[in-house]
C-alpha cells in the first residue's frame, strides 16, 4: 500500500478505520515518505490518534514529514471556485459558496466531488509521496468514489464536468490508488463488507480493494479448562475465537490485525497499528 499515491481507508462505523488510517500514515512517515493524512468525516476521528488537537483545512505537520488536515467543505469549495475554475469577477465568495452548498444538498454528487476532488488535487500536486484518506463509512463511500462519474452523467455541460475525467482516471489507476476496507470478524461488518465488494465489482471505479480485518483474537491451542476465572476466560476466548473463524471465512482478509488488549489511548492504538502493519507488509 505504501507504493501507491493514494490510500482510501473505509469500513463500517466502529471497526477502527481511523486507527488503521492513522497507523498507515505513521508507517509511511517512518519509512521516510512525505505523507498527508486527510480526515474526511467528523472532526476528531483521525486527529485523536495523533494527539495534536483538532485539525484544520490547511495541512499541519503533526510528526516530522507527516502532515494532517481536515476537509472543511466550504473551504474546499472556495478553493475550488477560485483556483481550479479560475472564475473571474466572483467577489462575494461567501454568498456564492453558501448558494452552491445549498444546491449541493439537493443535487447528487456535487458535495462529494468537492471533497474527493480536493484529495485528488493533493495527489496530483507533487507535495506528497502518499496521501492517506480516513474516508466515510462503507455505507457512504460509494457516492464519493462514484462522484466524478456521476457528474459526467448528470451535468451535460459546465466546467465541473471537464474536471471529472482526470479524477475518474486517477481513481481507476492501480499504480495510483488503493482502497482499503477495514472490517471485523462479526456479522454486521462482514455483511456490509460483502455488499461493498459486490458494488465495487459491478462499478469498476477503483482497483480491487484490500480487506483489513481488525481485532482478530489469537488462537488458544491449550484445550484445558481449569476451575475458576481462568477457566471462564479460556472458554469465552475459545468460543469467541471460533465465532470469528466463521466470519473470517466469509471474507478472507488480505491483512489481519490483532485485538489490542488493554490499550487505553488512541495514540497508543495508532502506534501499535503502525508496528503491526510494518510486520505484516
Amino acid at each position: 500500500m505504501l507504493d501507491k499515491r493514494l490510500v482510501i481507508v473505509s469500513g463500517k462505523g466502529g471497526v477502527g478505520k481511523s486507527a488503521v488510517a492513522a497507523g498507515l500514515a505513521l508507517l509511511g512517515q517512518r519509512n521516510g515518505l512525505r505523507v498527508l493524512a486527510v480526515e474526511m468525516g467528523s472532526p476528531g476521528g483521525l486527529s485523536t490518534h495523533f494527539s495534536t488537537g483538532p485539525l484544520e483545512f490547511k495541512p499541519r505537520e503533526v510528526r516530522p514529514g507527516l502532515h494532517a488536515m481536515h476537509i472543511v467543505r466550504s473551504e474546499a469549495l472556495l478553493e475550488y471556485l477560485s483556483l481550479q475554475l479560475r472564475l473571474p469577477g466572483v467577489r462575494r465568495f461567501g454568498a456564492v459558496a453558501r448558494a452552491f452548498d445549498a444546491l449541493a444538498t439537493a443535487a447528487p454528487a456535487i458535495r462529494e466531488i468537492i471533497t474527493i476532488g480536493k484529495i485528488l488535487w493533493e495527489v496530483k500536486e507533487d507535495r506528497w509521496d502518499l496521501v492517506v484518506a480516513d474516508a466515510p463509512p462503507t455505507g457512504q463511500i460509494g457516492s464519493y468514489l462514484r462522484a466524478p462519474r456521476s457528474i459526467s452523467e448528470l451535468v451535460p455541460t459546465g466546467r465541473i464536468r471537464a474536471q471529472s475525467e482526470w479524477m475518474t482516471a486517477t481513481l481507476a489507476d492501480a499504480d495510483m490508488t488503493q482502497l482499503a476496507i477495514v472490517t471485523l470478524p462479526e456479522e454486521l461488518p462482514t455483511t456490509e463488507t460483502l455488499e461493498t465488494m459486490r458494488w465495487l465489482e459491478d462499478e469498476h471505479i477503483v482497483p480491487p480493494p484490500v480487506v483489513i480485518t481488525n481485532r482478530a483474537l489469537p488462537e488458544l491451542e491449550d484445550k484445558s479448562s481449569p476451575d475458576g476465572v481462568v477457566g471462564e476466560i479460556a472458554n469465552l476466548h475459545r468460543s469467541l475465537w471460533s465465532e470469528q473463524q466463521h466470519w473470517l471465512a466469509q471474507v478472507p482478509p488480505d491483512l489481519t490485525l490483532p485485538y489490542m488488549f488493554g490499550l487505553f489511548t488512541p495514540g497508543e492504538v495508532a502506534a501499535h497499528m503502525s508496528d503491526e502493519l510494518e510486520t505484516l507488509t
Binding site: 472564475l87 462575494r92 454568498a95 456564492v96 448558494a99 452552491f100 444546491l103 443535487a107 459546465g158 466546467r159
Partner: peptide, 18 residues
C-alpha cells in the same frame, strides 16, 4: 449573479431541476 456562477459551473439544466 449567484445563479449565473452556478450556471457556468453546473450547466443551467441541473440548476433548474434542483
Amino acid at each position: 449573479p449567484m445563479l449565473r456562477v452556478a450556471d457556468s459551473i453546473l450547466g443551467s439544466n441541473l440548476l433548474e431541476r434542483v
